[in-house]
Each structure stands twice: as C-alpha cells, then as structure tokens.
Design a protein around this nucleic acid. Sequence first.
DNA 1: ACTTAATCGAGACGGTACGTCACGTCTTAAG
DNA 2: CTTAAGACGTGACGTACCGTCTCGATTAAGT
Lengths: 200, 200, 200, 200
Amino acid sequence: MTQSAEPVRRGRGRRPTDQVRREVLQAAGELLLAEGMGGFTIEKVAALAGASRVTLHKWWPSKGALALAGYFSVVGHTLAFPDTGDIATDLTAQIRAFVHLMRDTRAGHVIPELIGQAQTDAELSAAYRERYSAPRRALAVEALERAKQRGQVRADVDSEVVVDQLWGACYHRLLIPDLPLTDEFAEALVANLLTGIGRP
Amino acid sequence: MTQSAEPVRRGRGRRPTDQVRREVLQAAGELLLAEGMGGFTIEKVAALAGASRVTLHKWWPSKGALALAGYFSVVGHTLAFPDTGDIATDLTAQIRAFVHLMRDTRAGHVIPELIGQAQTDAELSAAYRERYSAPRRALAVEALERAKQRGQVRADVDSEVVVDQLWGACYHRLLIPDLPLTDEFAEALVANLLTGIGRP
Amino acid sequence: MTQSAEPVRRGRGRRPTDQVRREVLQAAGELLLAEGMGGFTIEKVAALAGASRVTLHKWWPSKGALALAGYFSVVGHTLAFPDTGDIATDLTAQIRAFVHLMRDTRAGHVIPELIGQAQTDAELSAAYRERYSAPRRALAVEALERAKQRGQVRADVDSEVVVDQLWGACYHRLLIPDLPLTDEFAEALVANLLTGIGRP
Amino acid sequence: MTQSAEPVRRGRGRRPTDQVRREVLQAAGELLLAEGMGGFTIEKVAALAGASRVTLHKWWPSKGALALAGYFSVVGHTLAFPDTGDIATDLTAQIRAFVHLMRDTRAGHVIPELIGQAQTDAELSAAYRERYSAPRRALAVEALERAKQRGQVRADVDSEVVVDQLWGACYHRLLIPDLPLTDEFAEALVANLLTGIGRP
DNA sequence: ACTTAATCGAGACGGTACGTCACGTCTTAAG
DNA sequence: CTTAAGACGTGACGTACCGTCTCGATTAAGT
C-alpha cells in the first residue's frame, strides 16, 4: 500500500505515543531532506514511519507544520551567537555562518521551501515564526543592544531594522536568486551598514 | 462545477489563438487576485476562461508560470524610478511606494505567494526573476550608479548589495512577518544605510 | 494498492467509456456474488475492474446502486410469466420458480442483501423498485387481470394486494428466516388464497 | 467529539455494571430513533452513554445487536393479541395496529432498517428472530389455532403460511415500498385470505 | 476491614473505506 | 490540424468508524 521505501512493518497493535511521534518526526525530516517540499507528502511520511495518516492529522495541523517539526527533529539546531566584544566581527561571523548553512548544506534547499510553503499554510507560518525566526531575531537584536551599550552602535538605531537589513538581505538572495550568496556578500552587508554608504 | 463566475459556453471548435490566450490570462489574473495562490488551480482557470486544460498545459509549463502571466496581464506594471537628483529622497519614495503596494493592495498577498510557489516551481522561479525582479533590480542599481557619479554614494560600494539591504529587508518582513511593514521602516532602511549605524 | 484479486493492469491511458462501464459492472457483479453485500466495496470493485474510484462515483450515486447494476449485468434477467389459461397453475409455477431461485442460486443471498442495503440507501431503493420489483409486480398483476377476465378470479379483488400475499410472503421468509422457503409453501400460498382459509 | 447531547462526564473509574448497561441501552435506543440505522454508530453510542467502546464490544457482538437491544429498552413492547371470538375481527384489528405502528410511529423507520441490517449481520438476525419476530408469529399462530378449534378456519390450513400471507405482505410493502401501507390494505389482506379470491 | 482482582473510562493507534480535488493524459468530435 | 469537451487513471487529502491496545482509576469480591 503506497510504500515507496521500506515501509517499516511492525506488530499490528498500538505502539507507545512517544515512540510513534519520534518515528514520524524522524521520517518526516528524512523525507524532507531527501525530496524537498515538492515530494513531501503526509502519505509518504505515514508510510515511511509505519504510522497511520489519521495519527499525523491528529497532531500536526498541516503538511507544512509536519515538515517543520520533522526538520527540527532531524537537524537539531544550535542557537548560539558569538560575543567577542566587537559587533562587526560578531555580525560578520554569524552571517557568514548563515550563508554557509544555506549554500553548503541541505538546509539551503529546505528552509526556502518551508518559507515558500508558509505563504499558503497559516499553521506553518505561525510555527515557523515562533520556533525558528523569532528566536534567531531575538539573538541578533540582543547582540546589537549590547553593542549599543558598548558604544559601537548609535543608540537611536532600531535594531530590528538592522536585522532585516542583514539577514533579510540574505533571505532575499536565497528566495529570489537573481544573485548568489557569497562570503563577500556577507562582509559587504556588515560594512555597508556600519559605515554607511553615503559620502562622508 | 467549480464555476464561480460565468462559465463561458462556446462551440467546440477552435477559436483564434490570441483570443484564447487573452481570455485565459484574464481569467488567471482574476482568479489569482480573488483567491490567492491557495485557490489557484489550472482547472478553475480553464473553467473560467472556457478553455481546455490541455490548451493551458501547452502554453504555460506550470501552474506558477500561468499565475505569474495572469498577474501581469491584469495588474499592468509601471516601471518608473524617480530621479530628483537626491538619492535619499528617491530611494525613500520608491521604497515607501513598494511598502504601500504590499500593504494596501492585493499585490501584497499575491507577490509573496508567487515567491512561495517559486520555491518548488522552477518554471515560475525563472519567469519571476526574468520578468519581475531582475528589471526592478536593474532600475534601482542604475539609480545608485547615478548617485555614485553625483558623489552621493561612495564609489566602492556594491550597488547590488545595497538593493538587497533595502528591498530584501522589505521582502523579509513580507515573507516572514515577525514584524510589520511600515513607513517608518522604509525611512529607517534608507537612513541606516546612507548614514551608517556605527558610532561616528 | 489493496489488490486482493488480480488487479487487471492495463495500459495507463484512458480506455473508451463503454468498455470501462462494462468492466466495472462485470467486476461489481462478480464481487457481489462472491462476497455478498458485506464484502462489497467501491474500492474493491475499482481494483478488480482496474478502474478509478472517482469514475465509479461519477456514474453510480451509491454503493448500493453500483451493486444493483452489477447484479443485473451479471445475472441477466428473464422476465417471463407462463400463461396456460389456468391462473392457479401459472401462479404456482411462477412462485415455485421464485422459491427455487432464492433457495438454490446465488440470488438467494444477493437479493435479500440488496433489499437490506436499500433500507438505508435511497438511491438503491429507487433503482431497485424501478428496475426490479415494479416490472415483476406488473407481470403478476397482468396475469391476475387476465384471470379476472377469464372468470377465474373475482372482479372485486385488488390484484396488487394478491401480489403482496404471494410474493411478499416469500420475501418475508427470505428476509426474516423464522421458517424456510419450500415448494409446499409455494403451493400452500396459492391454494390458501384462491380457495380461502375460512370454513365454507 | 460527536457529542450531540450531554456528553455525560463522570469519574474515570469503574461504575456498576448494571448502571453502565442501562445507560448504554438508553443511549442506543435514543440514537436509533433519532438518526436511524444510517447514523447509528458504536462510537456515537459510547460517547452519548459516557462509556468506552471496549465495553460495548464486550457485551454486544455487533452494531446491529446493540441497536436492537437499544430499541427494546426504549420502546418497551406490549405483546397482546385480541380475542373476541371472531378471527376475522381479531386479525383485522391486529394488522391494522401493525400498519399504524409502521406508518405513524418511529418504529416504521427503525424496524425496516433493523431487518435490513440483519441481512449482513448474523448476530442481529438471530437476536431479531428470537426476541422479536418469533414471539409475534407464535401469538398469531395461536390465535389461528384457536379459530380452527372454533371452526372458523379449516383444519388443514397451515397457520404459519397464513401468518406470512398477512404480516409478510405488510413487510413487503414496508421493505420494498412500491405501494403504501393503508387500512384498506389491512382489511383486504384478511378478506382475501378468509374468503378466497377465486370464483365461487 | 483490607487487599486484590476485575473492569471501567479515556484515549491513542493501525486499518479500511469513503468522498473529494486537482493533475496530466487520452479519446472523440467539432470547426 | 487545432481546439474543446469530457472521461480516465493517479495521487493525495481529510474524515469516519472500526477493533485493538495501554494506561490509570475505581469498584466489588475474597480473604
């Protein structure tokens, strides 16, 4: 019955809830990384996990929400922000790491597709903001606020806007790839913003 | 069934090619604006236009490509960039116009959904870059190059990066709405970038 | 996909409409006779016929309607009523034939199940009356009317009621099998009714 | 979920067996009368009774058996047969009462649906015959036997057959409604059978 | 009276079937 | 020869029930 890859047949009876959840998330994450959002299907996840579609529908409100949860369970994020005392160094390092992640790992395919799916999947949109983008924004904002207190950034600057001008610029090239993501791009972002592009 | 508006019954035979194309694009655009990408379907477009699905498949390689073409045929873009001689004024005006378009018109729903769809629709992605984003980038880059020649922007700045830091920041808030698009945001983007956010 | 018996794989493309209809009805009839109404499923019929569930839903409004159509296509009814000139002989022959059909052939299982299903399947109920029971009633009523004209049955008798007292009695034993259907039963039905059971 | 009426929240622990049985049967009967066999579901009964599906499965072997038990617990049958000394009067009265019950009360929907369900539910079939039809047959047969002893019915007549020709005829019109159940029908049944329909 | 076994409810799980939607392909018929 | 009309197979979706199983809580019977 619609079993593309090893369908993982177990005993018929009910398995413990937590085990089912884990296996489903595992399967979802693997399928997402393997086929991308285009081939990501509740049906396939259920088959891979040896679970029932009904069970998936009960816990994850939409295909996108399931995909995001699967992504988290497989990738296992580290939320760290360097703090060397120099904001230029820290921002550059962080953005270069982001560029690397998006250009050289499977996240570079998955994250844009999740954001894409979120445009027509309200459940995913909310989950993505809450669990992914908001915490990362917060880390960057905190770093900028610390830089303000150290006198490296003007106090009247809105840190949130700065975040959009750094990471948003990266997402722009990721989602609408007119131009590629490069290390030079990462450095130019920070330099432009700290120094300004206007004539002195 | 699935005929929201007049199903347009005609004879079975062939109609002139151009007429069919026009009517299909008209229907596609209207459906896209009315229901968004979520309810946008080749089937519905065909029904609305009184055309055959086969015909649509012949001319538009994917659902996204059809949606984009329909969008253009209905919206009718104006590609203008003000040139007052002051780059700060021009950029602010242009970005405020963009923010207005995305916040107060139907484009604000449609464009993000098209970008979203483009993440899993290569045909749409290519078409979108070629016909939408690339020309707009070019306009902004030209304006920045003119500003360089006027001495308003440093010559060593990569104009493309600046574009990402202005419009990309807007797209960021559009696609991942942690924070809203506002006029103050538009102004802060230009100010941050021209003046720089670092301590003088 | 849920293929219990030979799923009949053909070329992928579309087959002519009439052929599909024939094959579906064939499969439906066979499944009905093989498993009875309990195991009769739209899904199984589709699999057996190598057809799509959607197609079945398009043409037959309910599971029961499909089963009835399948029954007809497989059994192929003969609608004949003997006319020897003697109504007692004709009725007895016809009812004995009916008893034989219900007791010794597969119809004896299928017809009761169809009637049973019809109690909660309005589509089937209407189709059954129109295509099965009504024509058979009409034949019997005609025979009784002829008997009236020959002076074998009183003119003031309602032939429809007589039909219920003959065939309805058989259906009674068929549907609520407190007692079996036998040849003696068939004969007693006619005798009771023609002669009367009261003291002379 | 699926709790139309008061979901009946109790403590988790075990309740007295008899109380559970009573409440389940009450709920089953009400649901059956309210929605008919089509909407009758073990799941709904369990929810209405605040009981567990497992408990229902333990005591009633099939959906139909539960429905029948619920019907009895709510309707509460009176098994009486008039005995005026005149069999024609008694039969007519009894059949008219039956016609009234089936035409003007909720039993008229429920009984046919139970018989229908019994065609594919052996448990229900057996229970129905044992608890419903057989006792009623017996009453009628006894009345006919008494009539024989009074000389109102010929001694060589099989009373069981007569029962089928009276009540079976009614069930016929009930289950296959080509024609309606009416009082005239009830009277004609008895008249036809007692007097006979043949020419004198 | 106090264990202890029985059985309840709650609820999740795998499974079967349903009815629906949209897709892309194919056949047939019309112009 | 292009088009429309429309049917078909496919894949997926979301839902409804079913019968089973685990778990914790409570009652009732046996000591």
